[in-house]
Design a binder for these strands. Sequence first.
RNA 1: GUGGGCGUAGCUCAGGUGGUUAGAGCACCAGGUUGUGGCCCUGGUGGCCGCGGGUUCGAAUCCCGUCGCUCACCCCA
Length: 423
Amino acid sequence: MLIKGTKLPFKAVRGMKDILPEEIDVWNHLERLARQVFQAYHYREIRTPIVEETEPELFVRGVGETSDIVSKQMYAFPDRKGRSLALRPEGTAPVIRAYLEHGLDRQGSLLKLFYLGPFFRSERPQAGRGREFHQIGAEAIGSENPALDAEVIALAIHLLKAFGLEGLKTNLNSIGCPSCQPDYRKVLIKYLRSKSDSLCSDCRDRTERNPLRVLDCKREKCRPLIEKAPSISGYLCPACAEHFQRVQTHLDDLGVEYSLDPYLVRGLDYYTRTAFEIAYEHLGAQNAVAAGGRFDGLIEELGGVSTPAVGFALGMERVILAKGKELEMPTCRISVYLAPQGEEAGRETVKLLQRLRGEGIDSDMDYQGRSLKSQLRLANRLQAKYVVIISEKETVILKDMQSGEQEEMEQGLVVKKIKEKLS
RNA sequence: GUGGGCGUAGCUCAGGUGGUUAGAGCACCAGGUUGUGGCCCUGGUGGCCGCGGGUUCGAAUCCCGUCGCUCACCCCA
């Protein structure tokens, strides 16, 4: 409790949240499920530092200089020697950095990695979007086989289903490659400029800055124009078109349901060809719960030998938000609670408690010298299975909190008895 | 960065047009029950009414500012 008359001296940083004991079971549960699923798909975990140096421009070159993430959302700061550091705003660039730094490309053919942890972007907080947020992601590096695109998409969906999410919608598109996207881009810009008067002000801006982004403008005003806009699908080069077709065939073979969405665009510059997004309808404005795609140019951009790769990331907070109260886990339980009565009994209780714990039985005791009544009340709230009442006598009382039955026994026997009952 | 909504007890929220000691439910503590939980009953702890200024005889209430939270835009998982 705070001293009377004072207000909170410290607060969590804006947009960053404490995960409290009552919430942590959900997180651990999801992470445990995720690890199982990744194991089934043969992805191995990698953990990269939360901080990266910005000087060789890892994020600028990876994510894109003009992207909002780099241009205005990155937490960057100098360290003691004046080097510029940044809290990682996304996971792919650091994973590729580690991949190149440790020569993981020389250890085998295809490398499949997953990661989970916090990321940071200095955006305005909103439902499903914090300044610190947690992602689970995967990257499959070293093949342009469309079957791998399909695997990654299937993996993302598999994870979300394992988390218990229903009613997901998967959208798919191909945004081409460096040999065809620029041509489309020119055509699109030309079209958009011709309609510039009818577009919203944001879209006029986007036309010059990031024309593909105009395609997923939500404004009523822009919709009809967008629907008449040239579609990327007509401009894909033969190689991209075939790749996209084969991704779809594989998804069909896998029984994955998806919709083609020619307006789907990714915000990060490194994406090529396959782009996908998995949305949960009732989430509010931020309804993409997972998204990803292919990034065949990133590794070369970061100084490696040109290597194709696909991946995705999934937002933990959004998953938890989507699950809402459905996901509530059983609250904290304890097997045995010890209720000492009086000072002398306290010493015996501490010893008994240690013996129980030595046997691996989760147990606790009252340390506050409270009345038996309030100790039992607490034990009840903790959903204790058994309570041991210890008085100054030789014998103790073992009470079954569910049935209410209790029996008196020698103190030496109680640990053995509890072990029997719990097994 | 831009716009809307909201800041009253640990939590969820009441408190018409300003008017005495600011309320309820939940939670917490104690008692009813000569150390025995849940249900019920009774009582109790807990509030600079976000902060600062203004209007007024008088402000939780009206006005301005500020900070915080929240939703949305932008952008993104």
